[in-house]
Amino acid sequence: MSKLVLKFESSILKEVAVGQQEVSIGRSPDNGIVIDNPAISSYHARVFHEDGRLMLQDFGSLNGTFVNGQRVKMVTLKPGDSVGIGKHTIVVTDSVEVRAHSLDNVAAKPAVPKINETVMLDTKDRREFLRQVAAVGESAQPAPGRMKLPTLVVLNGSTDRKEYTLTDKLTVVGKSAMATVKLKGWFKPKAAAQINRREDDSYYIGPADKVPSVNGTPITHPTKLASGDVIEVAGVELEFVVRD
């Protein structure tokens, strides 16, 4: 039987089996999968069986439904598909082995503190909370040996190296003493562009002294980089590549 596994970042929040009954997804509490987030429509989408196939239909939601990154209206789902709704992900699986983790029971536990006094979570409760958090984290770990190495490959322009593996929280492209991608030549800015690594290990490029462009589009606000993106800034051209 197919199952839908609701995830937020690396945590599994809920699992729902899809039987004869369709499963609706939305913000409203009467949905089969409730996602209480302003980015989700009240009745956002549904998953149902038709002619032996598992189907997903978006109810014309404002922010859309994405399957493996593509915005969809109506598609056939297969095991392993990843459905993106807002910041949540629903993974389609036909396995019955995935265990559900719920943090709700820990959440209710610690005593309410005295009036507005800042306190530490009681040691016993904290251990239990952290243990459960760790358990969720472990089960969501990708298989070992699949380390992804994001790299900037210099396509054009004068820099101190031909390739840079991105491992830092902040990568600066410029002439600054602390810049990772060091630009050579006169009149180059101290910091032409910045790339930030976020907690989920995604990479965002943003403007600094210059407005960089990604695939020809000027970037004025931090924008997520995808493998294959070509960055142009201050006379250099860099390809962002994520290697397995």
């Binding site: 937020f8 929040l13 209480d36 302003p38 949540h88 943090l103 306190v119 530490m120 958090v133």
Partner: peptide, 28 residues
């Protein structure tokens, strides 16, 4: 505690703003 709950998608930011658990730290 509430920031951790928000991060894990258990409660929304708005709910966090009303939570009675706001004073509870997980690290200090």
């Amino acid at each position: 505690f509430v920031a951790e709950q928000v991060r894990r998608g258990i409660i929304t930011l708005e709910q966090a703003g009303r939570s009675r658990m706001q004073n509870v730290l997980t690290r200090a």
